[in-house]
Simulated scan of single mutants.
Amino acid sequence: MKLRIAIQKSGRLLEDSLKILKECGISIDNGKDQLKANARNFPMEVFYLRNGDIPQYLNDGVVDIAIVGENILFEKGGGIDVAEKLGFSKCKVSMAVPKSENYESFTDFEGKRIATSYPNTVQRFLDEKRVKADLHVITGSVEIAPNIGLADAICDIVSSGSTLFKNNLKEVEVLLKSEAVLAVSPKINDERKALLEKLRFRIQSVLQARQNRYVLMNAPNDKLDEIIQILPGMRSPTVLPLAEEGWSSVHTVINKDKFWEVIDELKAAGAEGILVCPIEKMVL
């Protein structure tokens, strides 16, 4: 019995999907242009699929799990559960109009032509806002539609916003914030669920490690209590005596989002020789 996972065969998700599997200790035998591959050291088969096809494969039970963008699940993946948010390939699904347009509110879309690759997502938004508009489904470069007179507005993925800028468009409404997720087929059986839980354990360890840093510092003993109070460690820091009398070595883990403010406080409290190390895996 093998866990069957689908990942995008090309594009922005492929590299990061393979990277997280590798960090989970899973080696994949994959030749060039191969559409299915086996893992050497984990009971897993990898299917390389078109991103837009993945929800159907999940719903049909052809694959058990997939690494896919939330935006694709929202558009095509009714009934598919998300086991983990993976924290990469973050983007938005947004409405955009020409820069020259004086946009005031969503009611400006009334009666307009909207070009999009996400018709279901846009229609939900319009229905919720009770706005009627004409949708033009485009699978290619959506951003060009207003420039060639095909549409008055667009809805598409926005990452940096540079593509909108190059096409003289501006973002006016965010319909959905998206990132890569681990999605689960509604038809997965119990044996494969057990394998999925093993994989989730590994993924959670990798994601925790990415969010934290291991920090070591030297602290004068008369400042030790103050320094320990500053530290937001998992439970309590490790404190070891140094060879130099009156000093201790303090070891802890700090979330990367709080890192610099904590370091500033530690320095002010008397900590010296602060070392920061990446964490490969973090098992809670």
Rank of each mutant, 00 (worst) to 15 (best):
G161K: 15
S159Y: 06
K166V: 15
A153I: 04
S141C: 13
R130C: 13
A153H: 06
V174M: 06
F109W: 05
N147Q: 13
G161M: 10
T107F: 14
A115P: 00
E171K: 09
E171Y: 08
Y118G: 02
S117G: 10
E110G: 04
R113H: 09
L176C: 06
T116Q: 00
V131K: 05
V122R: 01
D156T: 15
T121A: 10
V158H: 00
D134Y: 12
I157K: 05
R113K: 12
K129L: 04
K132A: 12
V97K: 05
E173F: 05
I144E: 11
A145G: 09
K170Q: 04
A145I: 03
K129R: 09
L176E: 04
V158W: 00
K129M: 08
C155A: 08
Y118F: 15
M95V: 13
I154Y: 00
L164M: 02
T107H: 13
D134M: 15
V172H: 07
T116I: 03
E101G: 09
L164F: 13
T107C: 11
S117N: 15
E104L: 14
E110P: 03
V158I: 04
T107N: 14
K170V: 02
V172R: 02
M95E: 05
A153N: 07
G161E: 05
E171L: 03
N168S: 15
T107V: 14
P119M: 05
N168I: 12
D134F: 15
V122I: 05
P119L: 03
A145W: 04
K170M: 01
N102M: 09
D108L: 07
A115W: 00
D127M: 14
I114D: 05
I148P: 02
L126N: 00
I144Y: 04
S162H: 14
T139E: 14
E101I: 14
R124V: 01
I148A: 08
S141H: 13
